[in-house]
């Protein structure tokens, strides 16, 4: 009984991190149907930025979140405006995916040049502390990563719902033409969305860097993870990412515990395929275009 509760709890904690790491990917996919294969590398860049900044400023890594998010927002905006958008216009959506893959390769190579291929870790003072809740054991750093993730996801959800920016993003995603007729600059909105998405990817990188040792080649995993979370939960909304992430976390730990620790990745992709077959729009559907 204890073991199953512990497994579920571990799964939820892990899932929170997965969710935050996928939400940006989901947003881009929802708003402009672009598959951003450089998503994972932005996550990893976030972790490296946090590592440098927290050492430089001698602050807790979580406090570097605003800086990292700001930097990556700018990067994301420029990246979409001057590269991805060009690819979409000149070629096709699918070809834009190849472009993002090319960018991922380049960025990964650049990371290796700057930081060497060695793995790095971010260790805040509470990195090794754990606490008990009843008979369950929680480790503080993972729980704080989960809390960060929940807070950020809620903020994003609120922003999408109640701010002018959120309304414009949603309008552009739902009815691109109508939104443009109302005077929305779609390119600007797309770039903004990309910026926000990169910012959140970077923030998740900080959480991940505190929990896991990270290295440039990890980017592939975080891109794949985003795929699964998004197909599981649904496209375009923080809620979808959260549901998908938490479910994935639980499935992961349950598989590891009861099938074998070697199998979580297998179940993860099996669920991806099954989910696509049964309900391609994810559990919560597409937040923007329910009819698709």
């Amino acid at each position: 009984m204890n073991l199953i509760l512990q497994t579920l709890a571990d799964g939820l904690v892990l899932g929170g991190i997965y969710a935050l790491a996928a939400v940006g990917f989901s947003l881009i996919f929802g708003v402009m149907q672009v598959i951003n294969l450089s998503h994972g590398v932005i996550v990893v860049i976030g972790a490296y930025l946090a590592l440098i900044l927290s050492r430089l400023l001698a602050v807790d890594p979580l406090l570097t979140i605003p800086l990292v998010m700001a930097a990556l927002f700018v990067f994301g905006y420029a990246y979409q405006r001057w590269l991805v958008q060009l690819a979409v216009e000149r070629s096709s959506l699918l070809a834009s995916m190849l472009l993002t893959f090319g960018v991922a390769l380049m960025l990964r190579n650049i990371l290796v040049w700057i930081f060497s291929p060695d793995f790095k870790t971010i260790s805040p003072p509470y990195a090794f502390v754990h606490f008990h809740l009843g008979e369950l054991t929680f480790d503080l750093v993972r729980v704080s990563a989960l809390a960060t993730s929940l807070v950020l996801l809620c903020l994003l959800a609120a922003a999408l719902h109640w701010t002018r920016f959120g309304r414009i993003v949603r309008a552009t995603a739902q009815q691109n033409l109508a939104a443009r007729l109302c005077g929305v600059d779609a390119r600007h909105v797309y770039a903004l969305t990309f910026g926000v998405s990169a910012a959140f990817a970077g923030a998740s990188g900080i959480a991940i860097g505190m929990v896991l040792p990270f290295a440039p080649p990890d980017e592939a995993f975080w891109t794949l993870n985003a795929f699964v979370v998004v197909t599981l939960g649904g496209v375009g909304s923080p809620a979808g990412a959260l549901v998908g992430g938490l479910l994935l976390g639980i499935v992961n730990t349950l598989t590891a515990q009861y099938v074998g620790p070697a199998f979580p990745n297998a179940t993860m992709f099996l669920i991806l395929v099954l989910m696509l077959l049964v309900r391609p729009s994810g559990l919560l559907g597409n937040a923007f275009s329910p009819s698709r």
Partner: peptide
């Protein structure tokens, strides 16, 4: 360097010879 070069090639390919 080859990973960077391959990436660059992909980017140029998509942009210049769609």
């Amino acid at each position: 360097f080859h990973m960077f070069a391959t990436g660059l090639l992909l980017v140029l390919l998509v942009l210049l010879a769609p």
